[in-house]
Nucleic acid binder design. Structure first.
Lengths: 320, 320
DNA sequence: GGTCACATGGCAAGCGTTTGCCATTTGTTG
DNA sequence: CAACAAATGGCAAACGCTTGCCATGTGACC
């Protein structure tokens, strides 16, 4: 390339990265030749020198889970806006896979967004020393994170149920390792106490459609009038089973989910659910990493994103 | 790293890439030290030397569209199995964005998987000269591709409707630029002719829930007894509107979708839809690229993946 | 014991950029 | 017109790894 343009490699380099350092005329010529040759600076060589790869990795437990689609999209958009390339990794809900990916990708990226990470605090802390890291819906001291406001969200849920006259509800728990699952239950319990409701936790359940029958049967056996499920998939699975058993939602039982996934709007009845701003979360996490790249601070910020209860047809008044 | 292990850099390198070239004992020691130090070879430096980045890019029109989740997951899995890193790009259903991404990522990756590409044949051909490319659900001469068997799939749909006594159906078309949309309609028309049914095409519609009302109303106005929608989201949108207007599916109108997305199983009534093997498609596309990296052939293969009609409750006998 | 093949480790030359430093040219100022 | 500063381009080192080549050590075979 340098030869083709009749200049030194350094001039080509500066034409791309440091315009003011070369004569405008020269620069135009270089760029013209580059365009003609379809030339673009080799990113690997660039990375070698600078140590910066202009690449970010986003790790999620399950790419196909629609809940993470929002995070992915938001991160992708923010990364593109910052001129960064996004590498996507699927940890298969598996701690070893996650750790391995962090290790393997480490030298190849400028930072990690870890969504719903299962990594122990200790491992996270160590990884954060090597690469900028931002957590989504997971918190650990010393690492930047973006979390949904579950305290407020769960309060909204409880008050919504209370306003319909419910005096108690059942929480169908998800995976025990889930940080957000723990936050949800803690929030629900606190809000229930504040509102004078009684809350019971069932489970843990694998939060999928397939767990619906077992969970629904447990709910019926307990004679509950309201159910809050770990996520929408489980909530929908429960509703399917309830319908099968002739139980009417919301007349007999009210059902609430978490996540507001695609489908929670068109299942039957449409599901009342707590919506998180997942795209925002992904974008903020990327921004946090970009900020860290500039200036590392000892105690990175925790951002709390608002949540909103989307009220649909799956909740209703307590049958008197 | 070399210093820490007390060997030369070349020995470290060979310990990782060329085990037989190093004494097993030495190698174990090197790997042990590497593990202790959390060391991993710098991919950028590796890429510089070899020109291979061990990275693949997957471009999809919309990451959040559940239809592509399968392709992403399949590609991710196949890439991981081949020791490749997957870079994900969202083209935002936009030709310029797609072209720009291909250009920008080109030197940084060993190949592209382009899912539902909107790029003109000419551009694709040119890009394929620079990087190995595999297309998913898009075909163009000279480029490897993996496509669903729409001819057979549409035949299954038509015969299914015919078996219920339907004598005609309406196809609700999607975006005019969609290659698979064109294949779907061509297949339906051919199958309809073969089976002696009459087929009419409405649209184009933006294939989302939101287009449901317009499409459903057109269907009702035409007095159709069966509808085949461009995809599941549109099909579900139509069903929601039909329910709103008191039309019973499948008693009054049968509805069929494409894609078998998450949610087609729990919408009401559950949707009869043509399932593609999207994970397989993603995996096969990655494999095609890996194969090309070894040996470039003049006319790369087209792989056709079977499709299967998933019959659920949204289709039924013609009301007599 | 002498030869030879083979196993193994080190040396050093790149790979394509970036960047600090120097040389040259051009323009400015007193 | 001298002296100096600014603009601009080139040179060369460095980034961390791979790999061809060479040096050394070891055992086998005659």
């Amino acid at each position: 390339m340098a030869a083709a343009a009749g200049v030194a490699a350094s001039t080509v380099s500066r034409s791309f990265t440091n315009p003011k350092r070369v004569n405008q005329h020269t620069r135009e010529h270089v760029l013209a030749v580059a365009d003609e040759l379809g030339y673009a600076p080799n990113p690997a060589a660039r990375a070698l020198e600078s140590g910066r790869t202009n690449t970010l990795a986003l790790l999620v437990p399950d790419i196909t889970n629609p809940y993470f689609s929002g995070v992915i999209k938001g991160a992708e958009r923010a990364a593109a806006a910052a001129g960064l390339t996004l590498v996507l990794g699927d940890t298969a809900e598996n701690v070893e896979t996650e750790e391995q990916l962090v290790r393997r990708l480490g030298p190849a990226v400028d930072g990690f967004v870890l969504s719903a990470s299962r990594l122990p605090d200790e491992v996270l802390r160590r990884a954060a020393e090597l690469n900028p890291i931002a957590l989504v819906n997971r918190a650990t001291p010393g690492v930047a994170c973006v979390v949904a406001d579950f305290d407020d969200g769960t309060r909204q849920i409880v008050e919504h149920l209370a306003s319909y006259g419910h005096r108690s509800f059942v929480f169908l728990g998800g995976p025990p390792e889930s940080w957000s699952g723990a936050r949800r239950w803690a929030g629900l319990r606190a809000a229930a106490e504040a509102a004078g409701l009684s809350a019971t936790r069932f489970g843990p359940y694998v939060p999928t459609l397939a767990s619906g029958p077992a969970a629904a049967d447990a709910v019926l056996a307990a004679g509950a009038t309201a159910v809050v499920a770990h996520n929408d998939m489980l909530a929908i699975g429960v509703m399917l089973r309830l319908a099968e058993r002739g139980v009417v939602v919301p007349d007999d039982v009210s059902v609430v989910g978490f996540d507001n996934i695609v489908g929670s709007d068109f299942c039957s009845p449409a599901l009342t659910t707590l919506a998180e701003r997942t795209e925002d979360a992904g974008a903020r996490a990327v921004e946090a990493i970009v900020a860290q790249a500039h200036t590392r601070v000892s105690e990175p910020p925790t951002r709390v994103l608002p949540t909103q209860l989307v009220v649909r047809r799956s909740t209703g008044p307590l049958r008197s």
